[in-house]
Amino acid sequence: MTSTGQPHSESTLNYVGFWPRVGASIIDTLILMVITLPPLILIYGWTYLESEQLFLGTADVVINWIFPFIAIVAFWAYKQATPGKMAIAARIVDAKTGGKPSLQQYVIRYIGYFISTIPLGLGLLWVAWDEKKQGWHDKLANTVVEVVKPTVISEPTENC
């Protein structure tokens, strides 16, 4: 929304490019690793890091698959961004209105990450050359990542 409360037009959105989004992803990945690795090592031991199995058990599925899904979608729903995106002053918006995406769009976007990764990460790399800086996950969910414009707060003037 603009400062007047009107939705953005597509031409007023300032899209976040490939490298800042890579940086945000690295931040998010590190945070998730700090949260998930300790309980996984406590439950499965250090051999967890050497395992070639996709799923080692219920705890593995909950900690590695369900928890990240809930945490990421919750951040998107409440803040329109993950901590990594917040660190680079970016947020996810609906591509058509510039407003807050729906929960359905967030879920589609999350699932779209897996689709974007399958063909050698091509769907993620797409951000680098797309006009709106959309990866395939963004295109599927009809979202874009925009730069958060700082709110200007004017200080009261003193009357002398």
Rank of each mutant, 00 (worst) to 15 (best):
Thr117Tyr: 08
Ser102Pro: 00
Gly99Cys: 05
Leu103Ser: 04
Phe69Ala: 14
Trp126Leu: 13
Thr36Gly: 11
Phe18Asn: 05
Pro38Ala: 13
Thr157Asp: 05
His137Cys: 07
Pro150Val: 06
Val147Ser: 04
Ile118Ala: 09
Thr12Arg: 04
Ala81Thr: 11
Thr47Ala: 15
Thr4Asn: 13
Lys79Pro: 00
Ile153Met: 06
Ile43Cys: 08
Leu122Ser: 08
Asp28Cys: 03
Arg91Thr: 11
Asp94Leu: 09
Thr2Leu: 10
Pro38Arg: 11
Phe69Thr: 12
Thr97Arg: 03
Ile27Gln: 02
Cys160Lys: 02
Ile118Asn: 00
Thr151Lys: 15
Met33His: 00
Trp76His: 10
Ala71Glu: 01
Trp136Ala: 04
Cys160Ser: 13
Glu146Gln: 11
Val152Ile: 15
Ile111Met: 09
Glu131Cys: 10
Ile108Asn: 02
Glu131Pro: 00
Ala59Cys: 10
Ser3Phe: 04
Val61Asp: 02
Tyr106Glu: 04
Ile108Gln: 02
Val62Glu: 02
Lys100Trp: 03
Val62Ala: 13
Ala24Cys: 05
Leu42Trp: 00
Leu40Val: 09
Phe75His: 07
Ser154Leu: 12
Glu146Asn: 04
Ser11Pro: 03
Ala95Asp: 12
Thr47Ser: 15
Gly112Lys: 06
Val93Phe: 10
Pro150Lys: 13
Ser11Gly: 12
Leu49Ile: 11
Ile115Asp: 01
Phe67Val: 13
Leu56Ala: 14
Asp60Ile: 05
Pro101Trp: 06
Gly23His: 08
Val73Ala: 09
Gly135Cys: 07
Gly5Ser: 06
Lys132Gly: 03
Arg21Phe: 08
Ala89Lys: 15
Trp126Glu: 03
Asn159Arg: 12
Val34Phe: 14
Leu56Phe: 02
Thr12Gly: 01
Leu32Pro: 02
Lys139Phe: 04
Pro39Arg: 13
Thr12Trp: 01
Pro156Asn: 04
Val61Glu: 09
Ile111Ala: 13
Tyr44Asp: 10
Phe75Ser: 07
Asn64Trp: 00
Ala24Thr: 05
Gln104Pro: 02
Ile31Asp: 04
Ile108Asp: 00
Ala59Lys: 12
Ala128Cys: 12
Arg109Met: 07
Ser116Ala: 15
